[in-house]
């Protein structure tokens, strides 16, 4: 989108020191997203502290160990994204950057698919959106994160295609990465509050 605009519309100037427009805009958006997740977590903590028993006795327990493995997958996807970013700015390393970025995307996709697989099991055992506040909050928070992950992966796939054709600008790459780092960075916090504590 950024390049398309640059070709057709008069651009405003920005000084060399400041962040690129796209990245700054994305960071402001991420600020809002962080507040959304903070609100969800605090709402969850309020509901939990006022409940008599948590999780409710008739509700299934969450797969803590399997999700710990999945957490490592997601974190390593973030690391691969960062490595792809480093390779991207070294001359003649474009092919390596592409490979690393592809691994990051595949790991991220695996995370989402594995979460979906776990959900099928949980629904099978009777944890649904309406079964209890416990289930409602679980699907709201974890589902909200999954939606963000799907959007972020779609953005990364688009960026990957541009990278392959060598038309990806640094600003676009950073903008897409920033959103993925939000998805990766917020997950351990959600995992701690929803699964562990």
């Amino acid at each position: 989108m950024g390049t398309a605009e640059a070709k057709t519309l008069p651009r405003s100037r920005s000084s060399d020191k400041s962040l690129p427009n796209g990245l700054l805009g994305m960071l402001i958006f991420i600020l809002t997203e962080i507040m959304v997740f903070a609100a969800l977590i605090s709402a969850y903590l309020v509901a939990r502290s006022s409940a008599e028993e948590w999780p409710p006795i008739d509700q299934p327990r969450l797969p803590v160990v399997a999700t710990a493995f999945n957490t490592i997958i997601l974190l390593s996807s973030g690391v691969f994204t960062y490595m792809a970013n480093r390779a991207f700015f070294i001359p003649k390393q474009e092919a390596k950057a592409c490979q690393l970025f592809l691994i990051a995307i595949l790991l991220g996709s695996f995370f989402v698919l594995f979460q979906g697989y776990e959900w099928i099991g949980l629904i099978h055992y009777g944890l649904t959106m309406t079964s209890s506040p416990y289930g409602s909050f679980f699907y709201l928070i974890i589902g909200g994160h999954a939606l963000h992950a799907i959007v972020a992966i779609s953005i990364m796939v688009l960026a990957y295609r541009k990278m392959k054709q060598a038309v990806l600008t640094p600003s676009e790459f950073w903008t897409g990465q920033a959103f993925w780092y939000l998805v990766v960075g917020v997950w351990p916090i959600l995992y701690y509050f929803v699964y562990l504590s």
Binding site: I28, M35, V36, F37, A38, A39, A43
Partner: peptide
């Protein structure tokens, strides 16, 4: 607005 609207979106 950006900071405060997050909780209301969640709500």
């Amino acid at each position: 607005f950006m900071i405060s609207v997050g909780p209301l979106i969640a709500g």
